[in-house]
Amino acid sequence: MGLLSELPPGASGRIVDITAQSASDPIAERLHDLGFVAGEPVKLVSYGPFGADPLLVQIGFTRFALRRSEAARIVVNTEEAAHV
């Protein structure tokens, strides 16, 4: 178990939970709408060049650039490294 923002490049896992930072966290809601929901396989593809930020994340058939603070809302289980 860990945060998506702490994975090394190339690592993958399954989403366990999205932690909202407040009662109505629009970023957490948007992550949910974009498909970041429990049970989905994710992969951290690579980092941006400055300060290893943002992160390039593969989810389903889609890739997103997420800032570190955004990816820190995503709890993943790396034990269950599903094929992404």
Binding site: P26, I27, L34, P54, F64, A65
Partner: peptide
């Protein structure tokens, strides 16, 4: 509020 990137590639 915090500005989001959440940018699709």
């Amino acid at each position: 509020s915090e500005q989001a990137l959440l940018l699709e590639i």
